[in-house]
Design a protein around this nucleic acid. Structure first.
Lengths: 197, 197
DNA sequence: GTCTATAATTAGATAGAC
DNA sequence: GTCTATCTAATTATAGAC
């Protein structure tokens, strides 16, 4: 395969960055694990920062697409529930990179500030949509809390490894919906109720 | 005052660690900001690690006391709601140190591993109590998600600075309760309902 | 208690041979 | 593409004068 080494470096780096943090991981560690030297690593990735960007970029692209898809849709209870589900999917699809984002903010901020700024902006837009049109301050807080519930999927997988992912997904989706004041979805129809609208 | 400098160092260090991360903050920065040199800093705190421990210890002590108080109390809806409130109070009382814990896990793990291990254990015990006796897997996940909702108070304060703290507190408390399946508290009596038990 | 000076280590990054 | 060897800069930490 072409560029095989480059990909292997990326994979190893993601793993080590997520496990020990960006600053705590040296390029020597990554190179050792891949089975090459630091100098060879630099042949494929021009800097540690660039390596991080290469890791984080795909996640950001997916996230951007998701938010844009979202904003084209009206804020109804069904769409809100769907949005939470899609958000959870995106989170789980990029689980490791998301964990890196969530757990290593300060390091990423100094290393790739602009990238984190866009990530934060996407989060804000997502929350704004979730809060609905003309939101109260409580709506904004609830939207924020709901996304945190979904985020907890990352930590839950580590803290509660015995819970199967399907159950984790379903439970967190209901929990996030509950935070937003949506009632439980009807399991027979998959349709959510419409309270407080 | 006795030990005034030592306290000033602690305060500045907490501020910088929280803002830029533990690894990203050098002792030179801290010393500069306090208005002394690195060598003087070492007179008061024997190492960077010890400085971190001095910062984190009070938070851990409060947290430990809270969890122990909690475990002595039966798992009823009212007590659960009270527990969420107490948890939120502890979180807000140590806001900066908590933010450091939440945002800089990898750095803290390598610097003060054992301390983080105890923090994690306390979190686990808190979640176990919240999940109730003989919890289902869904109960465990919900307990975890509920604490994440409370945690979001730290980030909310930054992301939604216009929301007054009282409203933030009340909204998050209701949100966490909703995650656990408790209904809205009656605003006139402050008593929660008892659904699904 | 605070300073100057410096040791010891490590990191990211580069030059140039093969 | 990968290597050996090296550079530069920054960090934690210490020694010892005042």
């Amino acid at each position: 395969m072409v560029e095989d080494t480059k990909e292997r470096i990326r994979a190893v780096a993601l793993e080590l960055f997520t496990a020990h943090g960006y600053e705590q991981t040296s390029l020597r560690e990554i190179a050792d694990r891949v089975g090459i030297t630091k100098a060879s690593l630099y042949y494929h990735h021009p800097s540690k920062q660039a390596l991080l960007v290469a890791i984080v970029e795909p996640l950001l692209r997916d996230w951007r697409m998701m938010v844009e898809r979202l904003e084209a849709v009206p804020h109804t209870p069904e769409h809100v529930r769907d949005a939470l589900g899609e958000c959870l999917n995106t989170l789980l699809r990029h689980r490791e990179a998301c964990a890196l984002f969530a757990r290593d903010v300060p390091a990423l901020l100094t290393a790739v500030g602009p990238v984190l700024v866009e990530a934060k902006e996407l989060g804000t837009r997502m929350n704004a949509w979730l809060a609905g049109p003309e939101p109260s301050q409580a709506d904004l807080v609830r939207a924020f809390a709901a996304t945190e519930v979904l985020n907890s999927a990352l930590a839950s997988a580590v803290m509660l490894p015995s819970v199967p992912q399907a159950e984790l997904r379903a439970t967190l989706l209901d929990a996030a919906a509950a935070v937003l004041g949506l009632t439980q979805a009807d399991p027979t129809t998959g349709t959510a109720g419409r309270p407080g609208l």
